[in-house]
Amino acid sequence: MNEAGRRGHDIGGKDAGCCERDEHELQAWERRADALGEVIWGKAALIKVDELRRLREDLGPNAYDDLGYYERWMHSLAQGLIEHGVFTVEELARAMSGLEALPAQPAGAQGPARLDALFGPGTAVRVIAADAPGHIRTPWYCRGKRGTIVELCGFFPNPEELAYAREGAPLQPLYRVAFSAAQLWPDTPANDKDQLEIDIYQHWLERTS
């Protein structure tokens, strides 16, 4: 058998160091993560244990080893619940980042085909400072940064939902947003006039006063 086909979690028989007798007490959040898992696959029956295993295995060998046990655990719970459509990447990102939930958008045939565009050209906006696992098309370097709407580019299915084989409805307004290079890269000398323009979906933007 060629070792290239061996998955990162499948480690029986490999070389490893001395077995340290780690008996440390779990942190409060780890106990809560443990219990949350039990509730999610037990009482609530939202997800199967083997789905969670698959999600942890798919981290690949480097992340699998780098993350702690309950970090992998939370990763699999969050991803699994997004896959099942229990909540969206957007909802998780806002909840993780202390932002209020947006008004619920009824999905599917009942809901609007597309969201109303809230921002016109020249509107001062800020990219929300949020993070979450999942497929996010808003680059890290612009999160939390101020910019100006250049134009509304049109309406697109939400890629965060497409990534989980859903329709991405309702369509999201997509804007081209201009950022000053000096603001984005304060440590890098730049001409004050230089700017960067990024395509950003509406749900990652908020109006600044």
Binding site: W29, R32, A33, E71, M74
Partner: peptide
């Protein structure tokens, strides 16, 4: 990850 735990539970 603690934030993720809190957020998932809250949602």
């Amino acid at each position: 990850y603690p934030r993720m735990q809190t957020a998932v539970e809250a949602l």
